[in-house]
Amino acid sequence: MLRVKQLSKFFNGFAAVKEVSFQANGGEIFGLLGPNGAGKTTTIRVIATVLTPTSGTAEVASFDILKAPEKVRQNLGLLTSEIGLYDRFTARENLRYFGNLYGLAGQALEDRIDYLVEILDMQKFADRRAGKFSTGMKQKVAIARSIIHDPKVIIFDEPTAGLDVLASQTVIDYMQTARKEGKLVVLSTHDMAHAQKLCDRVAIMHQGKIIAVDSQAKIYQQTQADNLEDAFLKILGADAAKSALKAKEAFELRWLSKKHKRFGL
């Protein structure tokens, strides 16, 4: 349902995402893991068509992000790490606006909003203006907003950051429900505990590159670790050592070539 092919994104010459490729299918929770600044959010934004790729492409529900961006957006629900709402609108009004933008209207939209209010437990504040909502309340409305159009692919970017245990649990429950419904859920996070509990397969990202993609079991096997956090640190450590070696080699090469020049060779 999601295919990412050799995707790169540069910001003024800085490579935030480098030739990233992976695939994920319906009925699974796929973890996109990595430390802060790894390039997870940038990868997601390119997939969601709000940024254009520098090279490579991706397909969401068989629609290409370059050729059919509007179809991609129609089939993708993205919960961004920023969960702003329109303060002067109630929770329901916020949802209704986005429902309209996704082409929903009338009774069908009202039913969908009622359903989301119920499963996300928002009855108490659904008709209050969002200006004074707590982070947890805002997060719930933001989740409802991202899936208002019942998309096939759902991407959650750091969905539990800044939430208390109860609010986090609502998010986690929803992800499991969506998996049961046969949707693809991509969870981008640096929280290994949540990822270990939820993800079927994971991709580990570091400095813009994917350095491992596999099921949790296989990753433990390869790294001889028994939890995701250790595995993650080992993989990251190996990658860091590799890139340190590369940097050293590059430096030595440069130094050598300089020396050669100096001696007129």
Partner: peptide
């Protein structure tokens, strides 16, 4: 400022 822009750009509206 309210951080609603990205959600808006994510909608299928051009």
């Amino acid at each position: 400022e309210r951080k609603t822009l990205e959600a808006l750009l994510l909608s299928p509206a051009s």
